[in-house]
Simulated scan of single mutants.
Amino acid sequence: MNRRDSLLAALVASVWGFNFVVIDWGMGDVPPLLFCAVRFLLVLVPAVLVVRRPQVSWRTLALVGATMSLGQFGFLYVAMAAGLPPGLAALVLQAQVVFTIVIAAGVLRERPTTAQVAGVLLGTLGLVVVSVGRGGHVPLTALALCLLGALSWGIGNVVSRASGVPGGLGLTVWSAVVVPVPLVALSLLVDGPTAVVDGLAAFGWQAAVSTVYTAGLASLVGYGVFNTLLGRNPSAAVVPWVLLAPVVATASAWALLGQAPNAAESAGGLLLVGGVLVALRRPRTAARPPRDAQRAPERALSSTRR
């Protein structure tokens, strides 16, 4: 990668990392599932009118949207509303790499490499350290909800891999078709109609700015730039930049919200990130994989979604 592309990759990862702080800042009194629904409504409209639909079945789009967007972000928003700090949320979501490798091995019969097995073990150890040594301000329920979000993302990665669906802005926009209505329905069921009405009334300028950032900058612009970088650089040169996101999220939460990680969270986070880096390492003697296989790590880490 040249210097310009490296700076762009770092910028996108920083936008994705700061995204977690923006979500926490903007949610306020808006129910988390309703807040998430508004985000994906803005991802969908008006972009769906100008972005071409990927040439895949509606069933595939629905599965990708239900796992990568609805499941991942529904659980994430509820976890943060339940008390999970932005920095820790960004870190725990990286467990999706571990889940992706394990699920792909079981469902797609993709035999993991030695590096991937080592990375899964190291990442799992990091998650154990984080969960056992988390501060008293972090409820175990919130941590578990975020892990469910990472699991949903991992399932979505495998669905995408199995179907051969092309990544990109089109997939981000059109898979969002199945997201807003179920989230609103879940919010009505979980929070109640009164809370939903009150949440809409409480949707002030902070919530609006947060939504524009998360939907417009983090999802549409961020993923568009990231996919462009993948189009002209090897994925192995681009994907590791995503690991900058938890660092930015943690630093931002520390500086702006006073949420400093404790020793166990920091140590566990380093183990998890180290595990991801090990899992992404390619054997030097391996033959060059097909282009679609080269994009598998990108599907496992890209955060459009962030």
Rank of each mutant, 00 (worst) to 15 (best):
Ile101Leu: 11
Ala236Ser: 14
Asp292Lys: 10
Pro46Gly: 10
Arg284Val: 05
Arg305Ser: 15
Gly168Ser: 11
Thr228Leu: 15
Ala300Cys: 11
Pro289Leu: 08
Leu301Cys: 15
Phe226Thr: 01
Thr194Ile: 07
Ser252Asn: 07
Thr100Met: 10
Ala264Leu: 13
Ser303Gln: 08
Leu189Arg: 08
Ala251Asp: 00
Ala105Glu: 00
Leu148Ser: 13
Gln294Lys: 07
Val165Pro: 01
Leu189Tyr: 09
Leu271Arg: 07
Gly199Lys: 01
Arg39Ile: 06
Ser210Phe: 10
Val138Asp: 02
Ala267Lys: 09
Ala208Tyr: 02
Ser163Gln: 03
Asn157Val: 04
Thr304Val: 12
Ser6Met: 11
Cys146Val: 07
Thr228Asn: 13
Gly269Thr: 01
Val273Lys: 11
Phe75Met: 13
Leu127Gly: 14
Ala47Ile: 03
Phe18Trp: 05
Val181Ser: 14
Gly17Cys: 10
Pro283Val: 01
Gly170Glu: 03
Gly268Ala: 12
Val30Ser: 14
Ala66Arg: 03
Val64Leu: 15
Arg3Trp: 08
Leu8Ser: 11
Ser6Cys: 12
Val107Trp: 13
Arg284Cys: 08
Leu34Gln: 04
Arg3His: 10
Asp198Val: 05
Val181Glu: 06
Thr250Pro: 07
Arg299Trp: 09
Asn19His: 10
Ile103Val: 11
Ala253Met: 09
Gly170Val: 02
Ala260Lys: 09
Ala79Asp: 03
Val22Thr: 04
Leu217Ala: 15
Leu122Glu: 01
Met80Glu: 04
Phe35Trp: 05
Leu280Gly: 15
Thr114Leu: 15
Gly83Met: 09
Gly156Gln: 05
Ser266Leu: 15
Ala142Gly: 14
Ala47Phe: 15
Asn262Pro: 08
Arg109Lys: 14
Leu243Trp: 02
Leu44Ser: 02
Gly167Thr: 00
Gly231Ile: 03
Thr304Asp: 06
Pro234Asn: 04
Gly167Asp: 01
Pro283Gly: 15
Leu188Gly: 14
Leu271Met: 12
Pro240Lys: 09
Ala207Tyr: 02
Val130Leu: 15
Arg288His: 12
Ala9Met: 13
Arg161Pro: 02
Ala142Ser: 14
